[in-house]
Amino acid sequence: MNAFRLAGDMTHLISVLVLLLKIHTIKSCAGISLKTQELYALVFATRYLDIFTDFISLYNTVMKLIFLGSSFSIVWYMRRHKLVQRSYDKDHDTFRHQLLVLPCLILALLIHEQFTFKEVMWTFSIYLEAVAILPQLVLLQRTRNIDNLTGQYVFFLGAYRSLYILNWIYRYFTEPHYVHWITWISGLVQTLLYADFFYYYISSWKNNVKLTLPA
């Protein structure tokens, strides 16, 4: 495993931990989109169908379990935990996430590398992950106050995607037959979605002012 890939996984892990810290410790999910969290739970559930059938490494299995467990517990917290539930900004989190799921499913049925159930589900998860952040970005734009933990959560998620791109470039030049257009294009689309947020996040950090996004 190369350094970009490891750093990507670690920033992904940090983003999840930041979110869990906010929810579990402060008992608040203010500014967090339940729609995005539900989409991520669906992404991991459909991508890791191989978790008990194909063993890759202990690292791989443990990380899969962490991402599955954390995404479903975040959804549980936001839907079922009394205190956390109360801080959920339901009125602003109105993105119709079904509008993302269906096109991704159709696209996965049309464009995939192998027409098997597992492979189509895996491809669907790749497409869905690319756009799953959209409800969260829309919610951020509608919320005038973005607290530090929410900003850091989105920042680390974006960092994870950027590092994965460096990982693909590295693997392309170091491994034979490493060509994965579906993953690359989806990953690139996903990273570009963060570009705007990154711009405002970094400039607020540089100028030492609170993060706000333009309407």
Binding site: R5, D9, H12, D50, D54, I56, S57, N60, M63, K64, F67, E113, Q114, E119, W122, Y164, N167, R171, E175, H177, Y178, V179, H180, T183
Partner: peptide
């Protein structure tokens, strides 16, 4: 073979 390599990613 090529398909499998990307499956070690998360």
């Amino acid at each position: 073979l090529a398909l499998e390599s990307v499956k070690d990613e998360l």
